[in-house]
């Protein structure tokens, strides 16, 4: 029981450390606040008028998608942070301390989730200012936000695996980011997938990003939209199970 208490305590210490990074590193703060807001305004007012979203106005269509996009891109920070710890000898220091080893990974992913929550709230405020409204009640809105946080957790674990496997922070930055572009843009994040050519449509319709964004959209807007939650939970649960296992393995192998 005592050791369980210390696991919690160590995880809290490491979570605080992770959160302080966001306060102290201006580039991370910009990455997780100003840039997403700019993206939202850009799509709402520059591209939005040219995108046809049958039955929905574009702001309502956009906001659930851009929340997902922001959280997915932001997940790359998890891997970069872990790789930095490895390359700077931080991990060695932590491993020589009588702390719970799991706290390093847990603290990093939890602090990234908290950061995601803050970013989501900020973006929702901007979304409300430009006309977005949750239209299906408080509980569905809360479910929508939880689903996005779960999406963030899933991609954080993928990012953690990349960070622990690749090790070099600069390479992790690129390796963790580049494959996200096709995944995020070839999805229903910004545009309805129906307009895409057939081969891309087949990919986009089944990607976890599209499935999650469609579910979040349905929870946010209600009306005729159908919430198809189980495939989303299967995808995200599967990603978390697989990549947290890989991360822990990689992390232990390095000790």
């Amino acid at each position: 029981m005592d050791s369980f208490k210390w696991i919690i305590s160590d995880t809290i210490v490491m979570t605080k450390r992770g959160l302080l990074r966001y306060v102290r590193l201006p580039e991370l703060l910009v990455f997780s606040t100003i840039q997403p807001v700019m993206f939202m305004l850009l799509f709402a007012y520059v591209f939005g008028g040219a995108i046809d979203t049958p039955g929905l106005n574009y702001i309502d269509y956009l906001v659930p998608g851009i929340l997902a996009q922001t959280i997915i891109f932001g997940s790359t920070v998890t891997g970069v942070g872990l790789a930095q710890d490895l390359s700077k000898g931080m991990t060695d220091r932590f491993h020589s301390l009588p702390m719970a080893r799991s706290a390093l990974l847990a603290g990093r992913t939890i602090s990234d989730m908290i950061r995601n929550f803050w970013t989501l709230m900020l973006m929702l405020v901007v979304g409300l200012l430009i006309g977005f409204r949750f239209q299906d009640g408080f509980f569905h809105a809360a479910e929508a936000i939880l689903l996005i946080l779960l999406l963030g957790l899933a991609f954080s674990w993928i990012s953690a695996s990349i960070g622990l496997a690749v090790k070099d922070p600069e390479t992790v930055q690129v390796a963790g980011f580049i494959w996200l572009f096709p995944l995020v843009f070839a999805s229903s994040v910004f545009v309805p997938v129906e307009t895409m050519p057939d081969f891309l449509k087949a990919f986009a319709q089944n990607s976890p990003v599209t499935l999650t964004v469609d579910a979040v959209r349905a929870l946010s807007l209600g009306g005729d939209l159908k919430v198809d939650i189980w495939p989303v939970l299967a995808w995200l649960g599967g990603i978390i199970a697989i990549f947290s296992t890989i991360s822990v393995r990689l992390y232990m192998r390095r000790t």
Binding site: D10, V13, L20, R93
Partner: peptide, 16 residues
């Protein structure tokens, strides 16, 4: 990204 003091306090907390 932490101050000198925060670094030491963090390590102290991890020593329980």
């Amino acid at each position: 990204t932490l101050t000198g003091r925060e670094n030491l306090v963090m390590v102290g907390r991890l020593y329980h």
